[in-house]
Simulated assay, not measured.
Amino acid sequence: MYKVYGDYNSGNCYKIKLMFSLLGATYEWVPVDILNGETETVAFLAKNPNGKIPVLELEDGTCLWESNAILNFLAEGTPYLLTEPRLRTQMLQWQFFEQYSHEPAIAVARFIEFYLGLPQERLEEYRVLHKRGYKALKVMEHQLMRTPFLVGEHFSIADIALYAYTHVAHQGGFDLTQFPAIEQWLERIRQQPGYVGMLD
């Protein structure tokens, strides 16, 4: 039995929850309260010395961390992990985009508003993150105007990775109504067999 250490409101943790649901696989969820410092305990740091969630603990006690790396592990041998070299590279391309261009803007803006309540001292940072976040959303919109999923016709872990924070971007103040292709893509993902919502 796999164990997932995470927070249900975290998009990075939701990626793993959604992946397990799509696979129809069972696992144990171990809640971690990031605001109360539970990722900084000695016990947690023994699982992930970087002190972040999610962490996937395997049956032999080995721990894997970094959400997109865990997605690649769980999707091995399934249709969600594209194997043709060009397609797999494009899939990885979107996962790197998510971690370097999308998540640092959209997830952090959401954290400032949804978790912290938009404190005055972080308003300027919040505005800067919006500029960067909208740029990332435009990149996605450009692709999704041409193809139903981020890697052409193939629903993959690239979509799972980017769905996680995009579908709750409004909680960080982002207006998705100006991105119709993204909105249609979000609905296509919600229609996938085995789909589960963030708080379901």
Rank of each mutant, 00 (worst) to 15 (best):
127 R>P: 00
87 L>Q: 13
120 Q>P: 03
88 R>V: 03
98 E>G: 10
98 E>M: 09
92 L>Q: 11
71 L>M: 05
90 Q>S: 08
126 Y>I: 03
46 A>D: 02
62 T>N: 07
32 V>P: 00
97 F>P: 00
101 S>A: 12
88 R>W: 10
127 R>H: 15
125 E>A: 14
70 I>Y: 09
61 G>V: 08
54 P>Q: 01
81 L>K: 11
121 E>R: 12
47 K>A: 03
37 G>P: 06
60 D>F: 12
50 N>F: 14
30 V>I: 15
58 L>I: 15
99 Q>C: 10
75 A>L: 07
113 E>T: 14
93 Q>A: 07
77 G>D: 04
63 C>F: 11
39 T>F: 05
76 E>M: 13
115 Y>Q: 10
60 D>E: 04
60 D>L: 09
73 F>T: 02
53 I>C: 02
54 P>W: 04
122 R>H: 15
123 L>F: 10
59 E>P: 01
104 P>L: 08
88 R>E: 05
73 F>A: 01
107 A>S: 15
128 V>R: 11
44 F>T: 00
59 E>N: 14
129 L>R: 09
32 V>K: 00
55 V>R: 03
38 E>T: 11
39 T>C: 05
98 E>K: 12
81 L>Y: 14
80 Y>C: 03
111 F>I: 06
104 P>C: 08
69 A>R: 02
79 P>D: 11
128 V>G: 00
94 W>D: 01
128 V>Y: 07
74 L>M: 03
66 E>V: 08
82 L>M: 09
125 E>M: 15
84 E>C: 10
84 E>S: 13
116 L>G: 00
75 A>W: 02
45 L>A: 06
78 T>W: 01
129 L>F: 13
33 D>W: 05
47 K>Y: 01
60 D>P: 09
68 N>A: 06
100 Y>Q: 10
74 L>C: 01
118 L>G: 04
75 A>N: 05
77 G>C: 08
104 P>T: 07
128 V>N: 05
54 P>H: 03
44 F>D: 00
98 E>Y: 09
62 T>V: 11
75 A>K: 03
64 L>A: 10
51 G>H: 11
60 D>Q: 10
99 Q>P: 02
34 I>C: 03
88 R>S: 15
84 E>D: 15
56 L>S: 10
68 N>R: 14
77 G>S: 09
106 I>Q: 03
87 L>M: 05
64 L>I: 13
64 L>C: 12
97 F>H: 08
36 N>V: 06
114 F>K: 11
71 L>D: 02
107 A>D: 06
63 C>N: 06
48 N>I: 09
49 P>T: 09
91 M>T: 10
48 N>F: 07
105 A>F: 15
41 T>Y: 07
91 M>C: 09
36 N>I: 07
58 L>K: 12
103 E>R: 11
49 P>F: 14
34 I>K: 03
105 A>H: 09
97 F>V: 08
64 L>Y: 07
82 L>T: 07
116 L>V: 02
61 G>D: 01
34 I>A: 04
91 M>N: 06
38 E>W: 11
79 P>A: 11
102 H>I: 06
48 N>Q: 06
36 N>L: 12
55 V>H: 04
92 L>T: 13
65 W>G: 00
81 L>M: 13
45 L>N: 08
123 L>D: 03
31 P>T: 06
94 W>V: 03
108 V>Y: 10
107 A>I: 04
78 T>S: 14
33 D>A: 05
83 T>N: 08
63 C>Q: 05
113 E>N: 14
98 E>L: 09
57 E>L: 13
100 Y>C: 15
103 E>S: 12
83 T>C: 05
